[in-house]
């Protein structure tokens, strides 16, 4: 071993260290540092059409990843201020085959989807979602002013009224046909202040339920082009953890 301690060895170790530091940095910076949100149990009920254990998850989308919401949670620690982000985490956990109800609060503005298919609600119970608006003063693209929803189940939004989407895909070999797509309509008010205060900031709260698949790590992402560059899928959309994450089904 003594022989290894030569200049050559030193250079090589240096190279390995450089590579590992780079990889280590990127592994740290591009994974989610924010922990896992476990679903809250609501007992067993008929929400999903049959008697199933019912759990719920609540999270939100924010316009500023570096911000802090009204309950003091950081949206995305170390996040880029000019990027939107899901928060306070992007990794969720729910039991297998349970009925999962999600409440997503959309604080961000929006526009048109690249593909109108994602304006349709898919894979949820009844293929619907329900949206409740609060403080929104922005008009819809068809002239509805302001764009508000009253909580009636809807099966689609206007493709040009999208803020983000929550699109959860299946797992090959485990849940190949599984697919949930939920469009989140845009929100905004004159103040343009979207840091995430439930009391004062404009938001749309989207609620939907679906039956979780078998055990596995399911990936979700946003299909609204909220990034820069080609097709709006550069920058934040290519950076893991802002508009993308996992649902661990256990």
């Amino acid at each position: 071993m003594r022989r290894l301690l030569g200049a050559g060895g030193a250079v090589l170790l240096g190279a390995a260290v450089i590579a590992l530091v780079g990889v280590g940095f990127s592994a740290q910076a591009y994974s989610s540092p924010r922990g896992v949100q476990k679903a809250t149990s609501l007992g067993t009920d008929m929400t999903c059409g049959k008697a199933l254990p019912h759990v719920t998850l609540s999270f939100a989308t924010y316009a500023d990843a570096s911000g802090t919401n009204d309950v003091g949670q950081q949206v995305h620690p170390g996040g880029n201020p000019s990027w939107p982000s899901y928060g306070p985490t992007n990794i969720f956990q729910a039991p297998a085959h349970a009925c999962v109800t999600m409440h997503i609060t959309q604080y961000d503005s929006g526009g048109s989807l690249n593909n109108p298919v994602f304006a349709k609600v898919q894979g949820t119970i009844g293929d619907t979602e329900s949206v409740v608006s609060s403080g929104n003063s922005v008009s819809g693209c068809d002239g509805t002013s302001p764009l508000t929803y009253d909580g009636t189940p809807i099966s689609a939004i206007q493709p040009c009224d999208a803020g983000h989407t929550f699109s959860l895909r299946g797992l090959p070999g485990i849940a190949p046909g599984f697919f949930v797509n939920v469009p989140l309509p845009l929100a905004g008010n004159a103040a343009g202040d979207n840091v995430g205060d439930l009391n004062s900031d404009a938001h749309q709260t989207v609620t939907f339920s679906f039956i979780a698949g078998p055990k596995g790590t399911y990936a979700w992402n946003c299909e609204y082009p909220c990034g820069l560059s080609v097709a709006g899928f550069g920058a934040v959309m290519g950076a893991y953890g802002y508009m993308s994450g996992y649902l661990h089904v256990v």
């Binding site: 090959p172 190949p176 990936a219 992402n221 899928f233 290519g238």
Partner: peptide
């Protein structure tokens, strides 16, 4: 069978498949 994406297309390339 599956339709798989055979050209690397960014972050979720591995998840781009359909039944």
């Amino acid at each position: 069978f599956q339709v798989r994406c055979s050209q690397i297309c960014g972050l979720y390339h591995a998840y781009m498949y359909t039944q």
